[in-house]
Design a protein around this nucleic acid. Structure first.
Lengths: 160, 160
DNA sequence: GCGACTCCGTTCAAATTTGAACCTTGATCG
DNA sequence: CGATCAAGGTTCAAATTTGAACGGAGTCGC
């Protein structure tokens, strides 16, 4: 391996924009969701993921992986959501070790109430700011980066 | 305002890829930096930002803004970095309220030691995965989103 | 000079995240 | 069977983040 290949100006620009956009965006989404619906962005993502699953339920490990969260982190969040009545835990009949997180009707209702404002903000702050070409490039490029990291991921490391 | 404009398939793809990539990437960078250099990704970003500043120093508020962090969060991190000898606080002579965070020689040395591996991983996981067109689109698109959020930001809200 | 504001950075308690350790089963192999 | 190892979730303590105060100074208009 030779000398480190530093980032050139455009690469730096892209990298900094990527980091900055995420931080800013995540914070705005968090604030809006908390204010309007009393849940965090992470909780929204969890509820949304469950709502798309068959029977609106998913196993803990699978859900953790789907929202790029750790096992223990998910245990905590599901605990919060359960206390709020938005999610319910269900034991798996075939495998005693497994636990399903199930979206309740209340959870679905909250999600439907929160979604319009959330999506509108995502549009305003990111999606609608991009040109169609940029949107496409972002979907392709980041999609590929995503795929590679998932493929490379140390499987022992929580899927994270 | 009419019915909510939901995200179409490509928009969803872009949005999910964006969120997922950040989560995965940030975690990998964190692990690598902790393992190789004993600092978190956030701490790396702070040190790196300081290293680029005139006299390697920046005021707390400015630094907080530059790394998209909260004031109290930065106070904490600078405390940690100071304990480790990587950063030092300096009072401002002209304004008694102001505090400068200064990168020490040790901090600079650590940064220089950490940088090659860090940059290599950023390349491997993101930059080098993108085509030149995608890189350009990302820099432009996310740069613009970034700019707008900074412009829109409630100035009272910590600059976050 | 006074009052009303704002800015700067810190402090504090509460909420969340992290990572390792742990407890239960499954699965696999002799 | 019995041993070993991996998988699935939870628990726990420690580290970090959050957001709302707070205290001390500047600033501005009057």
């Amino acid at each position: 391996m030779g000398r480190p290949r530093w980032l050139n100006a455009e690469e730096k620009r892209a990298w900094n924009a990527f980091l900055g956009t995420y931080e800013l965006l995540n914070r705005r989404l968090d604030q809006q969701l908390k204010q309007d619906s009393g849940i965090s962005h992470l909780q929204y993502v969890i509820l949304a993921r469950l709502s798309r699953a068959p029977d609106r339920e998913l196993r803990m490990a699978e859900l953790a992986c789907a929202v790029s969260n750790s096992k223990s982190g998910l245990t905590y969040q599901i605990g919060q959501l359960e206390r709020a009545g938005l999610v319910r835990r269900r034991a798996c009949e075939s495998d005693p070790r497994a636990v399903y997180a199930v979206l309740t009707d209340e959870g679905m209702a909250l999600l439907e109430q929160a979604a319009p404002g959330h999506v509108a903000l995502v549009r305003e702050l990111l999606i609608d700011v991009l040109t169609p070409d940029q949107l496409h490039a972002l979907a392709d490029g980041l999609g590929e980066a995503n795929r590679r990291m998932l493929a490379t991921g140390d499987p022992a490391t929580d899927c994270r």
